[in-house]
């Protein structure tokens, strides 16, 4: 949040305060409702959902839907459950986050502490790249991935996510390093420290918060991506979001709502955990991404 967290000077009456709390509480219910629906219905039997009330607590508690969603549910043509796709997403997200964050840090370092002619043009071009609708790159990307033999593979998806994550990771580090005292860098240079040594010894040790912000931002975006996964992944590299959508929208057989809800929670869990553990940094990333561009 903003550094400036003063209390407002507005004064309110007791009655107004009661009304304010009531409204705030209504919105709490609104925001929690879908999560509540997912959780309670993921541990109900299918009969109970069909015949009963989506907002009521389960009469018979069962973890069967969870086991099914994880291990045996039909995804596409084979009964694999979501497990292999969860693994696919992890295998995609880890390298995509590490590489994009590292490159972003280096770019931000160069763009603030080793300025060259045209540095602002380079940055401007990287900044604009953050906002393109990805539809504009889908066709050539499919062609290129095919040409270099990465079509339908996890490394192919990693490449895609690194490329289109770079703009934001660079933006985050650039804005952070902009405020970092250049004198320190100059002094280290006088002492004979080289380009990389200054980066490792001086900038990285004080980059903790921005690394957390960037990692969370990139992790959330890559994990939650659907468009690239749906466009470029094979059955063997399909990420969690695409598998979940296949599970939920498959038109054959009975609609197992409880299994769908369990699967949806599984897909949501990694980013939710990150949010619960470090929500402050998550919000900072969102704000930086929004306000600065």
């Amino acid at each position: 949040m903003a550094a400036n967290t003063q209390d407002t000077a507005i004064r309110t009456s007791r009655l107004a305060r009661a009304a304010i709390y009531a409204v705030l509480l209504v919105f709490v219910i609104y925001y929690l409702l879908p999560l509540f629906v997912m959780v309670v219905n993921s541990v109900k039997t299918l009969d109970e959902i069909r015949g009963g009330n989506m907002l009521s607590l389960p009469q018979i508690f069962t973890i069967e839907p969870w086991l099914k969603a994880w291990g045996t549910a039909q995804i596409g043509v084979s009964p694999t459950g979501l497990k292999p796709f969860f693994a696919n997403s992890l295998a995609m997200v880890v390298p995509a986050v590490v590489i994009a964050t590292l490159l972003g840090a280096l770019n931000g370092y160069v763009l603030t502490k080793w300025r060259f002619r045209g540095h602002d043009l380079v940055f401007g071009m990287m900044l604009l790249a953050c906002f393109i609708p990805f539809q504009i790159v889908l066709i050539p990307m499919a062609t290129v991935l095919g040409k270099i033999g990465l079509a339908g593979t996890t490394p192919g998806l990693v490449l895609v996510h690194v490329v289109y994550g770079l703009g934001f990771t660079t933006l985050f580090f650039r804005n952070y390093y902009e405020a970092f005292p250049t004198e320190l860098v100059k002094a280290a240079q006088m002492d004979g420290a080289g380009f990389f040594k200054i980066f490792y010894r001086i900038l990285i040790p004080s980059s903790g918060p921005i690394i957390v912000v960037t990692v969370i931002w990139q992790f959330t975006n890559v994990w939650n991506d659907f468009l690239f996964g749906a466009s470029f992944a094979d059955f063997d590299s399909m990420p969690m979001t695409v598998a979940l959508n296949n599970l939920v929208s498959s038109s054959t057989g009975v609609k197992e709502y409880n299994v769908h809800f369990a699967g949806a929670i599984m897909a949501a869990l990694p980013t939710l955990v990150v949010y619960v553990v470090s929500g402050r940094y998550f919000v900072r990333g969102l704000m930086a991404g929004a306000v600065k561009g």
């Binding site: 925001y31 629906v37 997912m38 959508n245 949501a268 998550f282 919000v283």
Partner: peptide, 19 residues
Amino acid sequence: YLYPMALSFIVTGTAWKWF
């Protein structure tokens, strides 16, 4: 108020589709 922003639209869509 903010946690929905951390979810994938596919998750949000699934929840609201059935609700």
